[in-house]
Deep mutational scan, measured.
Amino acid sequence: YFQGQLNAMAHQIQEMFPQVPYHLVLQDLQLTRSVEITTDNILEGRI
């Protein structure tokens, strides 16, 4: 994955969860590489 793709995914998640800091979303995406998994992590309070 290149950074631009991760940034696009992070923006997509931020639209759904504007209360979660962008850098935390991006940090999780770098591990998961998945909008779905990061979204689940937010919903389950891991982020």
Rank of each mutant, 00 (worst) to 15 (best):
Q30K: 10
E44N: 14
M16Y: 07
G4A: 14
L24Q: 08
D40I: 14
Q19P: 02
F2A: 09
F17M: 03
L29D: 01
L31H: 13
L6C: 09
T32V: 02
V25E: 02
M16V: 08
P21D: 14
R33G: 15
L26D: 02
Q5A: 09
G45P: 01
P21V: 06
L6Q: 03
I37R: 11
G45F: 04
N7K: 13
L43K: 11
Q30N: 08
L24W: 08
I13N: 00
T39M: 12
H11C: 13
M16S: 07
I47L: 13
N41H: 08
D28N: 05
D40K: 15
Q12W: 10
I37K: 12
N7V: 14
I42L: 07
N7F: 13
F17D: 02
R46E: 02
N41D: 01
F17R: 01
F17N: 03
Q27Y: 09
L6M: 08
Q19K: 12
M16L: 11
Q19S: 11
Q12C: 15
Y22A: 13
V20P: 07
T38W: 03
H23A: 09
I37H: 08
L29E: 01
A8H: 09
Q5Y: 13
V35K: 08
P18I: 03
L26I: 10
L24N: 06
Q3S: 05
I42K: 01
N41A: 03
V20H: 04
E15T: 11
L31A: 10
S34A: 04
F2V: 12
E15K: 14
Q12Y: 13
Y1I: 14
I13V: 09
F2E: 15
H11P: 01
L31F: 11
E44I: 08
E44F: 10
L6E: 04
E15P: 02
H23F: 11
Q14R: 11
I42C: 05
Q27R: 08
P18W: 05
R33A: 08
R46G: 03
I42Y: 03
Q30G: 07
T39G: 04
Y22S: 12
E36F: 08
Q3L: 05
L24T: 09
R46Q: 04
S34F: 02
P21M: 06
T32H: 06
F2K: 06
E36M: 09
T32R: 00
N41I: 02
H23K: 06
T39P: 00
T39V: 15
V20Q: 03
R46T: 05
E36C: 10
